[in-house]
Design a protein around this nucleic acid. Structure first.
Lengths: 215, 215, 215, 215
DNA sequence: GATGAATGAGGCTTCATTCAT
DNA sequence: GATGAATGAAGCCTCATTCAT
């Protein structure tokens, strides 16, 4: 956890520091990531970074936490609204749309967190990440339970397995969107999603009905 | 590419060097990975490493290449034999079994490559990896084409999307097995697979038939 | 010399600051001694330290001065009372007793000053210490002169040499007591001195009569 | 202990490194002592220092060890030759003469070690110094035992106390000589000793016969 | 070609001191 | 005057790479 001093900064400054860190870690990785550079880009003195964080690792860890919180704040909203009875897959699809929109303004954060979840920093995060993974998995399991209840998900397979499966696919969908987003550049505009839409729809169709032939 | 000098070593020595590198990079990552340590574990002089490779990065890159080649050599065999008419999913399942076996003797290499594919070293590999990704994707597309031909895969969805989907799921399956393998420890014995078997089967069932309810 | 501001503090606070400094310098030395830590332990703001003292060195120097003054105040009393005619060695012995008692309440200060006199901070104190050394030596010379007058000290040897000799021995006696005190711990009680008494007596006997055989 | 690499250097280089370290530590103390500076003065790269020593502390510790060994080699010779029957005090006096001579060429080493023994670096040396202290004390006790045997030292006082006493005085004598040496400058010549001689003699007389009046 | 010592750039971290409130 | 955050110089140490044998 950051030191008191950090939280005494106005939110704007806090954000500037963290975003500078995200940018640095994303581009150079943890080891090569340079505290001095982060400080410079955040417009604070190198020494100040140590007034805010115990050390580089703590800065990194907080950067992850901050990023996730930010994403949950925006992305999470949608999820929460699913406690009702709509079809899980519909929900999923809607979400994809939201995500695409977000990527426009939070590209870096999202990519950064994607790396984190991919295990790119597993040695740093280790156990401390577990609880987040758990939380994320829990969310997924909730989706599945809801789906089973409202009849949109088959009941003959264990939740755990379904969760794994869904995670795998949705991860790929996100990755796919991400790549599109990367190549679309910073100025991904609203309509750009149309290009992705049908592909995502197809993926969800597969998620739902599988790739085998009906017979 | 390594220098002439490296290839002049007898294969045994070459392998020892590379395996030492895999071990080091796997445990410490690229930046923290220590050339001196690799040399020591390989039983060669630190200076020699520079007689074999231009620099650390080249060593790393070759280590990746070597690992993939090794895996393809063993794992690829199975794939090649699929050009016949058996069901893609059956094939996939059989493959999972093989993979489990291999993990016993090539745990490190496999985990290392898993990290590589996960993008843990994306900044190092960058474009240079593309062709491998392509190769891997091509293989997947072959599977899909075969499946479509022999009627085991639905034809109403683009190959590319199917590939993405399949990749996502199979990646998850592998990850799942990997984790089991990790926790099973080094001495994963034959029978240990029984534990994983049913889960994998269920995943493949999902891959094939989806998680939606039939109606 | 400290700034006005420091002397405007009530004595209690002043003492708290200095004792915190003694404790810090004693345990960590000058370089490693941390101003922030001193401030924290004294219950003042780090910035205030610079309102009181020009810099770290001045704080240190004043800490030494303060310590000596404190010791002279308590220890010096005894000395002053010697202007009469009692035997120098008796006096010395009595003093040892007093000193032992004091160590109970001023252990840290005494040990700190011992270090100072041992030259542990010679680079800091340099010349500025000279006058104290002089004072201390002067005191010793007074003793010697008194001793010569009342016939308890031999007259055939220069005062300066006698002073050196006496200093050397008494230093050793103090050190010996100090060590006993250190191992005795904080709660050195009255009676503990009995253990040291005979040894000190023997030392004084040597001081007086030498270690050679009489013939 | 230094690493192999250090001992592989030719003795000349080894000495140059250590003497550079002595000079640095003597003038700046341990904390302020600068590895880079030492390296520069020794004519090696900063990084090399770490090929020779684990860290700054190890360098320091070895510097102490080296210094003591050097001194024992030169100074110790004389001591060893005392196992015969000459008067302890005569011996002591002779030794003082030797020491003076040595100071001409080993001023720095001697002053450095003096600081060490004075406890200037006690926090670094701690226990690790104990054995040297012990050795030094043991030597002193030997002297005393010999003295008691050949009748030059009184037998009614414990060895331990006599040792303390003698140590205190001889330390003062050395210090006195040292100071003379310091002020005499680097070019202390042979004859300069004449000035000190009588004073040392007087000190030894005191050591032997005490400062009390005979009656 | 092999070896392992030499090199020095680079980065994290500490902390005395200054500054703004 | 008090406070505590901001600052940035300084230094230990690591280690990829080069060099000399």
């Amino acid at each position: 956890v950051p030191k008191e001093t950090f939280f005494n900064l106005n939110e704007e400054k806090q954000e500037k520091v963290i975003r500078a860190a995200i940018n640095e870690f994303l581009n150079k990785g943890f080891e090569k990531g340079n505290i001095g550079e982060i400080a410079r880009n955040a417009g604070v003195a190198k020494g100040s970074m140590y007034q805010y964080f115990e050390d580089k690792k703590e800065l990194f860890l907080y950067t992850v936490e901050w990023s996730i919180r930010l994403l949950v704040q925006k992305y999470g909203k949608g999820i929460m609204s699913n406690s009702n009875g709509i079809d899980v897959f519909d929900f999923y699809y809607k979400n994809a749309r939201d995500m695409w929109m977000q990527m426009a303004e939070e590209r870096e954060v999202i990519i950064f967190i994607q790396d984190v979840f991919l295990g790119k920093y597993s040695n740093l995060i280790g156990e401390s990440m577990d609880y987040m993974m758990k939380a994320s998995e829990e969310m997924m399991l909730d989706q599945i339970r809801i789906g089973k209840e409202n009849g949109s998900i088959r009941k003959d397979i264990e939740d755990k397995i379904l969760s794994l499966f869904m995670t795998g696919v949705s991860f790929k969908i996100k990755e796919y969107m991400m790549n599109k987003a990367r190549s679309a550049g910073v100025d991904m505009i609203d309509e750009a999603f149309e290009e992705v839409e049908s592909d995502v729809k197809a993926m969800i169709e597969l998620l739902k009905n599988g790739m085998g032939t009906r017979n």
